[in-house]
Design a binder for these strands. Sequence first.
DNA 1: ATGCTGGAAGGAACA
DNA 2: AATGTTCCTTCCAGC
Length: 865
Amino acid sequence: MQDSLRVRVNSKLSFGAKKERNLRFLTTDMKSAEEDAYSYAPNVSLSLPLGVGNPCLAAQYHTLQSGPVISVSSCHQSSYSLQNDTHIASGYYHGLKPNGAPALESPRIEITAYSQYPEDEVEERSSNEDHIIKRGVNSIVTLTLPNADGYRDPSCLSPASSLSSRSCNSDASSYESGFYNYDNSPQNSPWQSPCVSPRGPSMLLSCPHATGPVGSPNHSPSTSPQIGAVAEIGWPAQPRGSRPNSPSCSGGVSSCSGIGKRKYSFNGNSYCQTSPNQSPTPSPYGSPRISVTDENWLANTNQYTNSAIVAAINALTTDGVVDLGEGIPIKTRKTMLDNSPSMSLKVEPRGEELGHEREHCHEDYPNRMALKKENYCGGFLDVPQHPYSWSKPKPYLSPSLPALDWQLPSCSGPYNLQIEVQPKSHHRAHYETEGSRGAVKALSGGHPVVQLYGYMESEPLTLQLFIGTADDRLLRPHAFYQVHRITGKTVSTASHEVMHSNSKLLEIPLLPENNMKAIIDCAGILKLRNSDIELRKGETDIGRKNTRVRLVFRVHITQPNGRTVSLQAASNPIECSQRSAQELPLVEKQSVDSSPATGGKMMLLTGLNFLPESKVVFVEKAQVPIIKTEPNDDYDSLGTVGLSMHSKPYYNQTRLTPVMPVADPDACLVGAYPPCPPSHATMPSSSPSSSPTLHDLSPVAYIKCLPNSPTHTTASGPMASHFQESPGHTNLGHPPSPDHNSSLEILHSHGSSNSLNSPGAQSYHPIYPNSSPSSSSSPASHPSTPGGPAESPFASAYSPSQVQAAANSSQNKGNSPCQLPEDASPSSMTIAVKQEPQELDQMYLDDVNEIIRNDLSSISVHPHA
DNA sequence: ATGCTGGAAGGAACA
DNA sequence: AATGTTCCTTCCAGC
């Protein structure tokens, strides 16, 4: 298909120009991939025939990303093992202890003691106000603020930490704490029991405030201290309503900060959170922002605390400390948290909860403190409402739930956790200073759906949700984003927030009566200020352009033998910035599924965000043409486009899904493809992502696709890898194939986007699914990538030459990498892509990615060419 | 009156 | 060091 078909595009919406336009086809060109990130998918699709096979989509997904993914095939827990990938393994596992506690990350964590402490103790402590350890720490902090401290501490510690700094976090935490409180209280235990679930509702019920029971809590806590108090107390907070949830947190915070705006934020945040409370101190200390964040939690404490103190505290306690310790990097925290979490989760949830709650309470205010103690501690309980669910369960106590940064499989034995409906590839996250921007939606207009297959027990379970990174390499809690609980009339799913480590978790009941399926209409995404997070001590990630996330779902199943099986499924990547949304083209429909390679036929593409500069590129792979769209980022687009275009055929086969994983999920979905077809029970994969990250992660695959430049390859690379890895997924690629011959890509030149610019290529942006992006971005690594689209565009240019070059390069680069690419490259290769070098180091990975891209590009190119 | 959105201004961070 | 571009965060306004 080199040619081009003409395409007219109508943009449905108003998008500006968007409406109908004729797209140009580029046949050969490469696009920039820029956005690739988003795009990932596209490429993928191309090829990938992969296999759809993998049972575990998730894996696939990951795979996709990673490349290696390989394995994905297996869904299982194995994942862990599977993961083999070195990467994975190393990355992931390493650090972690079996328990889940990441060893590496932070020792402290270990130190922490939640686990150590019996929950009871904890509670007691809590009750005591927590002076104890954390509390102690807190106490310290506390000192400053009397009551509050106590509360905070707990929460702060952990929560705070996580949140990072941000007040939000804190807030969040608070909120959460609120939740926690609940949790703590009986409720909390979500972990425990799924029960919670019930709780949710119940909670809601119970909570006066809240309408949504849950909701409120959240909010409140966070919110203002006072409010917080209330909130906590009451979910009441809910009442607050308005933004309670997020807002609260944020809102509260926001208000604080918000009001103040950043500048103020310092105060604001911190203050808000903390300070608000009471003490003045809080915020002050920290640097504004920083402090704020952490502060929030820590804030109080921190303030007082000196590093030494902190250290001591840490030593003592931990959690709290951690938080406090702003110093402690988030990661660390996470770890710690994780550890704790684990504990908490299973076992300690309370502890955490308590802690959190407390924290929350504390955080909020002295009042809260009072409240807490009273309320929460006492009152809450009273609050019968929440308790319901939460309390009850606690089934798991085991301390060891896996840390949030652990990679878990989506399938294990008979169990398979799948994301039946993927979230849209774009969701504008809200700042604390803003009101909630609603729950994450699915392409179809509904909401993401998660289902646990293979669970035959009558006891409900708790589905945990947190915001993870979109990195292919490693799936871990995102430092700059927090899940935000949404409540209201439109929310049908009960939920409650809990702080885990520094991350907020949303706990949602998985009920047998609902076939262990949950509609995730209660999850929004809160953006924390980069400055707040970056200030954290341990934080190493850069917020700038790090705007892609994934919804990560976990479920812990306690088997008859007492053993707990933890499954995890991650969604496709979601772009959370405002910007991208606008820029990404999205193809919702295509009038023709296929056309002669000779061209001459008109194709009508309907979608969004088509710009004059947007181009549609057809790539002929083998025989089957594939169409890709590459909107820059949009996965959607990609997804859509790709999907559609190609087709459906593909779709069918493979499903984009895999490929798309991320990005497009929507598209895919939208496209009508089920994201995870697989979903079926069997499928593990479904969530491609899900899984285990392990798998993938490797960025390699994804990779960025693109590099631009020069050769870049583009997307292909990633895709390729994806393909390879998970054929299935990839497939999206193409499964097997059918079609894949050519692909159509829509490119935008987004303006300036770098990528575009780049190479002569035209920069297309393939729409690859996230994966690529992610990969590219590896978390750490590519900052740019991360996000996006633009930056790293995948630019892929596809010129033949380039392609070749790419290929070569790939070769050059490294074997493994090369290999991958190489494999991939082959045109059609298809997909084949190579296997990934398992062992590649990330370093290599990057290279590899490029290579792959190149390969891909080349591949695609070939066709064209 | 709220909550959710989309859009955009202003300023900071980068290149 | 200056300039231009991109990105981040906060506001505003409309539905």
